[in-house]
C-alpha cells in the first residue's frame, strides 16, 4: 500500500510510460495495443491496472510513470466509484499535469446525465483534462490512442516547448452549467 509518486524513479532516455487504470478492463487492452504499435520514435511502455494502489511486489521493476489515465465507463456505476477510491493513492505531484480522465459511453442512451456531471465535477476539482472516447469503433480507439499518446509525449518531456503542466492548464476540464437549463 503505497502512493504512486511521480519522481521516485529516474526517467530513461527517449522513453515514456503510461498507466491505464480501468476497473472493467474492457477498453484499456485495446487502447494499449494501439498505443504501443502507433509510436515508432520513442519506446512507449503501457502499464495496465484495475485500480490503485499498485501491488508492492513489482515496485522495483516498475518504470517511472509519466501519465496516469483513469478510464471511466459511464455505463457502469462501479467504474466511477472505483476511480474515486484509486485517486487516494496518487501523489499530489501527479496532479500537476500528469493525470487525465478518459470517459467512454457518454453518448449512450442508458446513461443518466448525472453520472457524466459528477465525472466532470471530479475532473474540474482536480484540474485535470477530461477526454471523451468512442470505444466501440476502431476509428474511435485509434483517435483516443493518438490523443493519449500526444499528451503522454508532452508529459514525458518529449515535445519541445511544452510541459505537462502547461498542456494541462490549456485543456483542463471546466464545469459548464447544464445546457438544458441555460440555453433558453
Amino acid at each position: 500500500m503505497s502512493t504512486l509518486k511521480p519522481f521516485s524513479k529516474i526517467p530513461e532516455l527517449n522513453s515514456a510510460n503510461v498507466l491505464l487504470v480501468e476497473n472493467e478492463e474492457q477498453f484499456q487492452k485495446k487502447l494499449a495495443d494501439v498505443i504501443v504499435n502507433a509510436e515508432k520514435d520513442v519506446s512507449v511502455g503501457v502499464r495496465l491496472a484495475r485500480r490503485l494502489p499498485l501491488p508492492v511486489e513489482n515496485e522495483e521493476t516498475r518504470p517511472c510513470i509519466d501519465l496516469v489515465v483513469f478510464i471511466i465507463n459511464l455505463s457502469f456505476e462501479r467504474s466511477f466509484q472505483s476511480v474515486e477510491l484509486s485517486l487516494k493513492y496518487v501523489d499530489p505531484g501527479f496532479f500537476l499535469g500528469k493525470v487525465c480522465f478518459l470517459v467512454t459511453g457518454a453518448r449512450c442512451w442508458s446513461v443518466s446525465s448525472d453520472r457524466l456531471q459528477s465525472v466532470r465535477k471530479l475532473a474540474t476539482s482536480l484540474r485535470c483534462p477530461l477526454l471523451y472516447a468512442e470505444d466501440q469503433t476502431v476509428e474511435g480507439v485509434n483517435t483516443a490512442a493518438a490523443r493519449l499518446l500526444r499528451v503522454l509525449k508532452v508529459t514525458a518531456g518529449l515535445t519541445p516547448w511544452a510541459t505537462g503542466l502547461s498542456l494541462s492548464t490549456l485543456t483542463r476540464c471546466t464545469l459548464s452549467s447544464d445546457l438544458e437549463g441555460d440555453f433558453d
Binding site: Y132, E134, G140
Partner: peptide, 8 residues
C-alpha cells in the same frame, strides 16, 4: 461538442 472525441 461537450462529449465529442474529435474524430467522429
Amino acid at each position: 461538442l461537450a462529449m465529442w472525441d474529435g474524430s467522429l
